[in-house]
Amino acid sequence: MSALAKENPMKQFSKHSVSAQAMVDAFKRCGIDYVTTVPDMVQIALHQLLDSGESGLKVVHCTTEDQAIEVAGGLYAGGKNVAVIVQNQGLYAGINSLRALGLDSKVPLLFVIGQFGREFSNLGGNPRDSKRRVVFLLEPLLETLGVPYWRLEGPDDMGNVEAAWKASRERSGPAALIVGHFVGW
């Protein structure tokens, strides 16, 4: 372990993080112009960049995740391209809105879902092997809902942002990008 890592154990996990700026750049390549959100703890760096006004993306802050999904539906109806940023708990809370707008109504929705609560010992491993229900239930739940998903486990996975976005457009429905660890500053 490096001296820096000994000083701050968080540093040793940086290879599992992607930067907030890289995520914003990927969103822009997709043509995304709006983000709706209830903030997610593991994506705080991304939220800070978005809230700074320097990202070029507009942000709609909502008080619940179902609203974030519904506002995204309204923005789509009005011609905008939207990403919905929530954490795993928020996805669980918003399932009926996902069902109504994403699945029944076939509205293309990109969900960016942070794996809140994932133990560091699981980083680099399979999130399904996590000891925490809030983590290991996410992918099976998305499969039950018929929502395709891509993992974002480190910088090598950045292409998955565009893959998930493209899938949401092609299938006219929801697709998910699962952010496995804290986004970097």
């Binding site: 709006y34 709706t36 507009k58 709609v60 909502c62 179902d66 609203q67 519904e70 506002v71 995204a72 539906g73 309204g74 923005l75 789509y76 109806a77 009005g78 011609g79 905008k80 939207v82 809105s97 109504a100 707008l101």
Partner: peptide, 12 residues
Amino acid sequence: GAASIGLGLALA
């Protein structure tokens, strides 16, 4: 959901 869908449309 109506009010939040309306919010999205109003912003768009």
